[in-house]
Amino acid sequence: MKIDVCVKQVPASNETRLDPVTHTIIRDSVCSVLNPFDAYAVEEALRLRERRGGTVKAFSMGIPAAAGMLRRVLALGVDSALLLTDRAFAGSDTLATARVLAAAISADGLPDLILCGRMATDGDTAQVGPMLAECLGIPHVSDVAAVEDLTDESAVVRRLTDNGYVRLRIRFPALLTVLREINNPRLPSLTGILQAEEKAVPSADHADLRLDPVRTGLAGSATRVISSFRPVLEKKSEILSGTPAQQAQALTARLKSAGLITE
């Protein structure tokens, strides 16, 4: 079975902080790590390989330093990796990113299965996986919580929805985006790290992938970031006073008026 897994390097923390003295945004001190959601995709790829045999290859679009992150993925047991790096890819939105990944995966020979993390912790869009599937013209299932039945031609997956789980059979080639609950990612072994040190992490640019630069990067992006902000979770609390009976009455009235309970 040929499995590809897409990974991304992200900042270890996405917290925006202000310097308490200068009140400017602090940009340093945050190291880069493998997108935590992608760790589940890598782990699932390794587990599926353990079930059915085959190979796992990791793809990442990023800056040259992302090679270090790919080497970390190799240390987990991934067979090979390809870094897609080019100034022409800079500023890519989710669509442009999906195009680059699709070109690299097609050029390498379409696998049976592509695994992606549900989303990246820096952008939170959850769009690249499904877009990649569309670019490749293959089916996909997002938010996969388990890969149950697995054959050479298809898999039965459990997908989380707002109303519970649904079970779907999907024919290969296909793409899955996976949830945290799908597995418990392994830590690299000492042997794995030392072996990964000996492996090459090749890279490819737009010319290698025969991509027109106007279809990648900022130029090829369908969206523009106008501003970014951190969603604020607002919590309000109110203390009800009176006897327990009065408090219960007041609480019931509030819940009714908010439509959370009925008579």
Partner: peptide, 28 residues
């Protein structure tokens, strides 16, 4: 990497197994 190479040799000499040794390389 030099530390890990030394540790690998050390582990083998005392009866440990580098294959089953967990390594953490970043915060996560």
């Amino acid at each position: 990497i030099p530390i890990l190479k030394s540790l690998s040799g050390l582990l083998i000499s005392v009866g440990g197994d580098p294959d089953s040794t967990w390594v953490a390389r970043d915060e996560l």
